[in-house]
Design a protein around this nucleic acid. Sequence first.
DNA 1: TCTGGGGTCCTAGGACCC
DNA 2: TCTGGGGTCCTAGGACCC
Length: 423
Amino acid sequence: MATFALVDCNNFYASCERLFQPRLRGRPVVVLSNNDGCVIARSNEAKALGVGMGAPMFKIRKLVDEHDVAVCSSNYALYGDISERVMNVLGASAPAHEIYSIDECFLDLDQLAVPSLAAWCRHLRETTTRWTGIPVSIGVGPTKTLAKLANRLAKKSARAGGVLDLSHNPEWITPALHKTPIQDVWGVGRRWTVMLQERGIHTAFDFAEAPDAWVRQRMGVVGLRTVHELRGSVCHALEDQPPPRQTTCCSRTFGTAIFDKAQVHDAVMSFVERAAEKVRHAGQVAGAVQLFVRTDPFAQNAPQKSLSGSATFHRPTSDTREIAATVRRIFDRVWREGFGWRKAGVLLLDLGLPGAAPASLFDALEAPDDRLMSAIDQINARYGRGSARLGLAQKDSEWRMRRENLSPSFTTRWTDIPSASLA
DNA sequence: TCTGGGGTCCTAGGACCC
DNA sequence: TCTGGGGTCCTAGGACCC
């Protein structure tokens, strides 16, 4: 019998904001998406006030004012760095681990020889919080799906104390399934929730009882795997060596609609720079690139339009200059005047290792020179992102995001390091 | 006035092959 | 008159995750 643990940081972004800002402790805190658009993280106090996940800021303005809710713009430099610290603690603790998201980590506890797994988990939980300042909850189960489910209950139940082990208490599994609403099962999203509820399936227990053939027909093999995992058979193994990315994307919603071609082009070029950096950082090259630009889908009265175009490189590349030249051609080809553009993005596709693709007939004629890109990447690694650039885009332009309540980069920028005084 | 960004996997259908 | 069977590859769209 396999044993998986899921360690999940509680209200991760809100907890990160609190780390270096004690004035936020005990107060309701929300963290907003880019452009300060909608809520993407809430402290327990904010949840208790009824602030929903994904709620647009303009809809909760009144609640925020009335209850003195602290509002933070998202600060990914901070969250990414804190995440790395948490993952380091967790990775060192277990025989094998899989970083599942910025705030979640699966552990494989099969080979762990300890007298009481629950006690071990409680200790890990305390250590993680003491060493990183981030509170976590731990769920344990015979499959990843059950570990997820246990984690949710560990968070909710005061009695559980942040840890719930279903693996060594199999008699708790059935009650746990009964207590889990169908929409909270890992792998069941909004659409499937509606479909399942219409057919009388309201809890994880109901779902686990559903006939295989029916699930297979309505939800494909993906749904069937979830059902089997709820019943305790492993369908999702621990992936401690994550497969390399197949695509990478850099896109943004602009702070305001933009009509000007040069401005949109500027934004697109900065996305090219960032996307190419990501791909080089992963040691990969891209086989193709896609560009999209679209209007604001929420602007009911404005004309809607979506532009997109793509191109294949005859030799896979990660060179910003080459990608930029290609994207510029696509941009000129698809551009249309007269629309208020609100979002754009660049996708790098068919990612692979350099040299993995078959050589083209003309390769010998154009040996790539990657010295400039390496130099730029090294400078930026040392002095901070954006220190050296190709001059493809203005540094500060109109399309920039709104981030009105941005916290300092406490741990990743020298000038922002918090100071303490003993006086 | 004000609604994020970045991914994965699966499936169906069409083009094309012999 | 009679009009197969079995593949592959690609793409778009839909579901999901955080």
